[in-house]
């Protein structure tokens, strides 16, 4: 780990630490609780990164298997959620490499993305008129996002969609915080250039 701040076990919630201990001891109920707690987060991140529902479900399964196999090695160096993010990203990266080796292409069309994601959802802090305006904009933005390099796309999704802080993104991607900033800057510049192209 380069620059991500070190977080000790004291930073991990006591209830979460107890859950981890129970899971490591083989408590099946605890394992089920851990999966239920983080499954949506894992699935949505995998789906946003891959754009394929079946692949995202498959990745979810692989991620939790990996989590339970390596949980005994978790030393509280981050929050459990951040640690799981890291596993998700590594699994997705491996899957994309596997795709590239088989020349299936790593691009997912916007139609396919919208087909899987359904209607665009709004957030409570977005006004309805702004939401209407954003639907079309979001279409272009996601289209442009799919063309970004994986590292930039991942950093931007972790920041904008999942709301991770720089430090957490750095841990999840196993990079320095400065690298996180530069990737976010480049990703936003590329998307802004596409946005300006659409406007013009």
């Amino acid at each position: 780990m380069k620059n991500a701040g070190a977080i000790s076990w004291s930073d991990v919630d006591s209830g979460e630490a107890a859950l981890i201990a129970r899971c490591a001891a083989g408590d099946e109920a605890a394992c089920a609780e851990l999966v239920a707690t983080h499954q949506r987060m894992v699935y949505s991140l995998a789906l946003n990164l891959l754009g394929d529902r079946d692949e995202a479900l498959d990745i979810s399964q692989e991620v939790f298997l990996r989590v339970f196999r390596t949980l005994s090695g978790f030393r509280g160096q981050s929050a459990l959620r951040t640690w799981i993010y890291r596993i998700v990203i590594n699994q997705v990266r491996n899957r994309q490499r596997w795709w590239r080796r088989r020349c299936r292409g790593d691009e997912v069309s916007l139609d396919e993305h919208l087909k899987h994601s359904g209607e665009l959802e709004g957030k409570q802090d977005v006004l309805p008129d702004r939401l209407l305006a954003s639907k079309e904009t979001a279409t272009y933005i996601w289209q442009a996002l799919d063309r970004l390099p994986f590292d930039q796309r991942t950093a931007l999704i972790l920041r904008e969609v999942d709301g991770l802080r720089y430090e957490e993104i750095a841990f999840s991607l196993d990079i320095a915080i400065g690298t996180v900033k530069s990737r976010l800057t480049r990703a936003r510049q590329a998307l802004r250039a596409d946005l300006l192209g659409v406007r013009s």
Binding site: Y43, N48, S117, G118, L120, V126, R188, R192
Partner: peptide, 20 residues
Amino acid sequence: EDMRLIGASLRVGAVRPPRE
């Protein structure tokens, strides 16, 4: 403003599973 719009668009277009 553009960068905030990009962030909002990403959040709007993100998938919220599972709904079905």
